[in-house]
Design a binder for these strands. Structure first.
Length: 289
DNA sequence: TAGACGTGGCG
DNA sequence: TCGCCAAGTCT
């Protein structure tokens, strides 16, 4: 399985900007944070801009939170930008401006969890570790377990599953990790998998079992329209599109339900995505004088 | 551990 | 059209 997969990857991998050989560990880290729950096509231009502006962690750490949130643009989940900014500060101060290569050290940084820590260790530093994201979980569920899709995530079990699949050779293990993800992204997709193009077709347990439909519990559908997430997004968008602090009325205009609006405004302040000036105006954090 | 947390494109 | 989906983390 590993040889087939690695060979397939070498011929079919996408030419993504963060996969250039010259990409630094910092570049890999930034890409991984941006790619959390966010499509490649939307990340690519922003990542290029960030690498140009902030080629090392200390450069990012030196600018205000507001500038970072603004540069994050509409990638979504803007708290990621705040956490990355904070992580950059720790890396600059405590790690000599060098992204740690040790998984446990990476895990201690804000915004870096089990997936991202190992993704950095493996993709930036070539280590052998199980990198488990939604793509990998789906590929393993099908090819190994013969299920139509992955059930609820279980970090410990999922990583143990993948660990067993990794080649002993460190370099091969690293390539296998990225290949598993790429297969899940391009071939073994959630809907309408392109099995005819799959390098694992003849080995796949799901294929052998007659491609049974997924029978486990369904993930609860995440609504968006009308949720606090939508309102927070609208509120923050006002500040992103404005140069300086804005009056309360500008924010009030984006959502009719005042109770929900107030709740969301408060949560943005609590999260540090927004600040109130002494004059009572609203601004991105650290941007008002 | 279930639920919160943005956004926009696609079938 | 609109539900589903996209390289998760935190509480």
């Amino acid at each position: 399985m590993d040889a087939l997969l690695i060979d397939w990857y070498s011929h079919n991998k996408r030419d993504l900007p963060w996969r250039q050989p010259a990409t630094s560990a910092w570049g890999v880290l930034v890409s991984e944070i941006m790619l959390q729950q966010t499509p490649v096509a939307r990340v690519a231009p922003i990542w290029l801009e960030w690498m140009d502006r902030w080629p090392v962690p200390s450069k990012l750490a030196a600018v205000s939170q507001g500038e970072v949130v603004r540069a994050w643009g509409k990638l979504g989940y803007p708290r990621r930008a705040l956490r990355l900014h904070e992580a950059a500060g720790v890396i600059a101060k405590d790690h000599n401006d060098i992204v740690p290569s040790d998984v446990d050290t990476l895990l201690a940084l804000p915004g870096i969890g089990a997936y991202t820590a190992r993704a950095v260790a493996v993709f930036a530093y070539g280590q052998r570790a199980p990198v488990v994201d939604t793509n990998v979980r789906r590929v393993v569920a099908r090819a190994v377990h013969g299920a139509g899709d992955a059930g609820p995530a279980s970090n410990t079990r999922d990583m143990a599953d993948v660990e067993k699949l990794l080649p002993v050779d460190v370099a091969d293990a690293a390539t296998m990790s990225i290949a598993l993800m790429e297969l899940g992204a391009l071939i073994c997709t959630a809907k309408n998998p392109r099995c005819v193009d799959c390098p694992l077709l003849t080995d796949c347990a799901w294929q052998k079992a007659g491609r049974p439909e997924y029978a486990g519990p369904l993930k609860p559908v995440q609504r968006f329209a009308g949720t606090d997430r939508q309102v927070r997004g609208l509120l923050l968008d006002v500040l992103r599109d404005t140069d300086g602090p804005v009056e309360r009325a500008r924010l009030d205009a984006v959502w009719a339900d005042s109770a929900q609006r107030d709740r969301c405004l408060d949560s943005l302040l609590v999260d540090g995505l927004m600040e109130q000036t002494p004059q009572g105006l609203f601004a991105l954090p650290g941007e008002h004088s």
